[in-house]
Simulated scan of single mutants.
Amino acid sequence: MIDFQNGGFYKLSAVDPQPLQKEIGPLLIEGENVLQTFKGIRDFIAFTNKRVIAVNIQGITGKKRDYTSLPFSKVQAFSVETAGTFDLDAELDLWFSSVGKVRFEFRDNVDIRMLSQLIAGYVL
């Protein structure tokens, strides 16, 4: 599992879910749909209607991958912080039972309020 306390997913930008569908498609259960995807330099996350799937690409070749599933049913609280004048990154914090806080940082072009509304629809 990804160690979110000593690292996380930073500088994420919204990307088209279609190219990533091939990689995470086998992980999805019946009735689960990918809603939004975000990619960093190598790593990426996918928001589905059931969970967040965080993919950590490891090693020089990138063949080794860690897939961490964070179900919305385990979210206890969440927080969003919009980008500002000097702090150009928006942040999403999710608190999961038994995992703790998970932080994702997004580039300023990501509509963090829309993402907050998406999460609220599945958590509340």
Rank of each mutant, 00 (worst) to 15 (best):
D87W: 08
E81W: 12
T82W: 07
G100N: 03
S98P: 08
V80R: 04
F96G: 00
T85Y: 13
D89M: 13
A90P: 02
E91T: 14
S79F: 10
K74D: 15
V75Q: 04
W95M: 12
S97H: 10
A90T: 06
D89V: 11
V102R: 02
W95G: 07
T85F: 14
F86Y: 14
G84L: 03
K74P: 09
V99G: 07
V99E: 06
G84K: 00
T82F: 07
S79K: 14
W95Y: 09
D89T: 13
K74H: 15
G84I: 04
P71I: 05
A77S: 12
S97N: 15
D89Y: 14
K74S: 14
L92Y: 01
T68F: 05
A83W: 04
F86R: 09
V99I: 15
A83D: 05
L94P: 01
L94S: 01
D89Q: 15
F86L: 15
F78D: 02
D89N: 13
S98Y: 13
K74F: 13
S69K: 10
L88P: 08
S73T: 15
E91N: 15
V102M: 01
S97C: 12
E81P: 10
S97W: 10
F72A: 03
S97P: 09
G84N: 03
S73C: 12
F78G: 02
S98D: 15
P71M: 04
F78V: 05
P71H: 05
V99Y: 07
F72E: 00
V99T: 09
F72H: 00
L88G: 09
F78P: 01
D93P: 06
K74M: 12
S69H: 11
F72T: 00
V75N: 05
S79P: 08
D89I: 09
V80Q: 05
D93V: 08
T68Q: 07
T68C: 07
T68W: 06
A77V: 08
L92K: 02
P71Y: 04
Q76M: 12
F78C: 04
F78A: 05
D87I: 08
L94M: 06
E81C: 10
L92P: 00
F72S: 00
K101Y: 06
V99D: 06
V80M: 06
G100A: 03
E81D: 14
F78W: 05
K74V: 10
V75W: 02
K74R: 12
A90Q: 02
S73F: 11
E91Q: 10
F96E: 00
V99N: 03
D89F: 14
K74Y: 15
S79D: 12
S97R: 11
T85I: 11
L70G: 00
S97F: 12
W95H: 14
F96P: 02
F96N: 00
E91S: 15
K101W: 07
S79W: 10
Q76G: 09
F72K: 01
L92I: 01
V80T: 08
S79A: 14
S69D: 13
S69A: 10
L92V: 02
F96Y: 04
L92N: 00
V75G: 05
G100H: 00
S69F: 10
G100R: 03
S69T: 12
E91A: 14
V102N: 04
S98T: 13
G84D: 04
Q76D: 09
L70D: 01
D89S: 13
D87F: 08
A77R: 10
S98A: 11
S69W: 08
S73W: 10
T85K: 14
P71F: 06
S79C: 11
L92M: 02
Q76T: 10
